[in-house]
Design a protein around this nucleic acid. Structure first.
Length: 286
DNA sequence: CACTCAACCTGCCGGC
DNA sequence: TGCCGGCAGGTTGAGT
């Protein structure tokens, strides 16, 4: 899915439309959607029926809804997941996986997921910081107040890998995916295969600025949507595709120098760079 | 412990 | 038209 800006758009929608409401019924239409909830669909539904949603939170690409009585409904959108707020009489989506009705009889919450890489689970164990145990391994994201810049820089410099691999490691920094990694590296003029241990503190500080800038700009546009898969809770697409400088722009001119953007295979997907602004390092690290 | 990669899915697009 | 390969914004768990 969706990287941090797209997930934050969804979180804001949940905050607006479902916080304060009480779940009445839970219908799991596809077991794979709750595979992380190992106790199964009946347990999942039983823990949620009667629970009241007290907030809508996010860390990186994970979402969760804290519940009264002290549990939390966790969600990850994977590659194609959507959380939609729909009128009860809206036609059922082709890939509807879980459906929640709410006590006031108004709009209902639906989890729709074409590829089923995403999923939901109920957490019974919430840490002191309010983060469910299942998400404890996810690092803070760069837009969160608890993100520690110095700790991130030190951790990157201790690594022995390529900088893009580090950016995609959600236990180091969360919320960054293939699009925003490429966009931030272009802004910071860094090639994705630059060795982490050779990057200086100022260079990494600049990279953090680039990440925050591009994600904040994307959020202001409602996120990036190439197609109808990436939408807010009302099904509306964002407009940041226009703001992308390298991602998906193979052979188009770099907006800074005119050199054609290059696409390389990378970790079973793609990386986009400007060959001139982001020269390949002499000793690349994958 | 640090790191890498295949596997999990469905749909779409381009080439033959 | 149909079939096939390639590709898609992510995470995890097994393996080195």
């Amino acid at each position: 899915m969706p990287e941090l800006p797209e997930v934050e758009v969804v979180r804001r929608g949940l905050e607006r439309f479902v916080v304060g409401r009480t779940i009445v019924t839970v219908d799991v239409l596809h077991p794979r959607a709750i595979r992380r909830h190992t106790a199964g669909a009946a347990d999942f539904a039983g823990l949620l029926a009667g629970a009241t949603i007290t907030a809508a939170r996010r860390r990186g690409k994970y979402l969760w809804l804290p519940l009264e009585p002290g549990t939390a409904l966790i969600g990850h959108l994977g590659m194609s997941g959507q959380l939609l707020v729909q009128p009860p009489d809206a036609p059922l989506e082709a890939h509807l996986r879980v459906r929640f009705t709410l006590a006031d009889g108004g709009t209902e919450l639906r989890f729709v997921d074409q590829r089923t890489f995403g999923g939901l689970a109920v957490s019974a164990v919430v840490g002191a910081d309010g983060v469910p145990a299942e998400i404890a391994h996810i690092a803070p994201d760069p837009l969160a107040p608890e993100f520690d810049d110095a700790a991130f820089v030190a951790a990157v410099r201790r690594r022995r890998t390529g900088i893009k691999r580090a950016l995609l490691d959600q236990s180091l920094i969360s919320g960054v995916g293939n699009i925003y990694a490429d966009e931030a590296l272009w802004r910071a003029r860094l090639h994705y295969a630059r060795a982490t241990e050779t990057l200086t503190r100022p260079v990494l500080a600049d990279l953090l600025v680039a990440l925050r800038d591009v994600m904040t700009a994307a959020l202001a546009e409602g996120g990036t949507s190439f197609d109808s898969l990436y939408v807010d809770v009302n099904g509306t697409s964002g407009y940041f595709e226009r703001g992308l400088q390298v991602y998906g722009r193979a052979d188009l001119p770099c907006s800074r120098c005119g050199t054609p953007i290059r696409r390389d295979p990378f970790m079973n997907r793609s990386s986009y760079t400007c060959p001139r602004c982001q020269p390949r390092p002499r000793r690349p690290r994958w």
